[in-house]
Amino acid sequence: MTMRARLCVDLGPVKLRWEAWCALHGITSADGVRQLVHELLSQEESQGGATGHERHHLVVSGHRERIEIRLTQAELAAARQRALAGGLNVNRWMVAVIRAQLVHEPQLGEREMRLLADSNQQLATIVTLLGRLQAHGDAHEAARVLEGFRAVIDTHLRAVTQVLRANLDRWSR
């Protein structure tokens, strides 16, 4: 089984500043963290502290080279079918397959993006309601509401994890 290397970091109050910095530089938050980690590790390696790990850093923005791939009609039909099932066109699907193999990261299709967006919207609503409870200072009411939200949050966390795991499994076959 392939080991998946993931890192979850709670940025707390600096998250909005981090996201703004990443947006200014045209990268995602995850790519920004990845670049920082790789930069620090490569600095360490250049100073003699080699880690022995392969660097998986691909810049997906900027100029792209066109390549030609020749498939049989049956192969192209199968690729189109899989692409359609993933909510992608065949070119985007092939790029996603290649990127998933190179960087071992999720390559989300339309369906996964929609599921994650819905989940994030519902979680944002929960956060807003909890903020209102906190502002009113009713600790007993907040504890009661939190208990009700816990099941909803756990369901969403499982759904997001399931989507990402299925996505990684799909591309790593």
Rank of each mutant, 00 (worst) to 15 (best):
T2V: 05
R6L: 01
L7F: 13
V9F: 10
L11R: 12
L11V: 09
L11C: 12
G12T: 09
V14K: 07
V14N: 04
K15H: 13
L16K: 14
R17H: 11
E19C: 03
E19R: 11
E19Y: 01
W21C: 06
W21Y: 13
W21K: 10
C22T: 10
A23N: 11
L24A: 15
H25M: 08
I27D: 03
T28D: 07
T28S: 15
S29W: 00
G32Y: 01
V33G: 00
R34G: 06
L36C: 11
L36K: 08
V37I: 15
H38S: 03
H38W: 15
E39D: 09
E39N: 07
L40H: 12
L41T: 01
L41W: 13
Q43D: 13
E44W: 14
E45W: 14
S46G: 10
Q47P: 02
G49E: 11
G52N: 04
H53A: 07
H53P: 00
H53Q: 06
E54S: 14
E54N: 05
H57T: 09
V59C: 09
V59P: 04
V59A: 13
V59F: 01
V60H: 01
H63A: 12
H63D: 12
H63R: 14
E68F: 12
I69D: 05
R70F: 14
L71R: 02
T72M: 12
Q73Y: 13
A74E: 15
A74S: 13
E75T: 08
E75R: 03
A77S: 14
A78E: 12
Q81G: 02
A85W: 04
G87S: 01
G87T: 00
N89A: 08
R92T: 14
W93Q: 13
M94P: 03
V95S: 14
I98C: 10
R99D: 10
R99H: 07
Q101F: 01
L102R: 07
H104S: 12
P106W: 05
P106A: 01
G109N: 02
E112F: 05
M113F: 02
M113H: 03
L115D: 04
L115H: 05
A117V: 00
D118G: 03
D118R: 11
D118E: 15
N120M: 08
Q122D: 08
I126Y: 07
I126G: 01
L130D: 07
L130S: 05
G131M: 06
Q134P: 00
A135K: 09
A135R: 13
H136D: 09
G137C: 03
G137H: 06
D138N: 10
A139D: 10
H140A: 15
H140S: 15
E141T: 09
E141K: 12
L146M: 14
L146E: 09
E147F: 11
G148P: 12
G148D: 08
F149L: 11
F149E: 09
R150I: 03
A151C: 04
T155L: 10
H156S: 02
L157F: 14
R158G: 04
R158S: 10
R158N: 12
A159V: 03
V160N: 12
V160Q: 14
Q162W: 11
V163E: 09
L164W: 11
L164D: 07
L164M: 13
A166I: 01
A166K: 10
N167G: 08
L168I: 06
D169L: 09
D169Q: 15
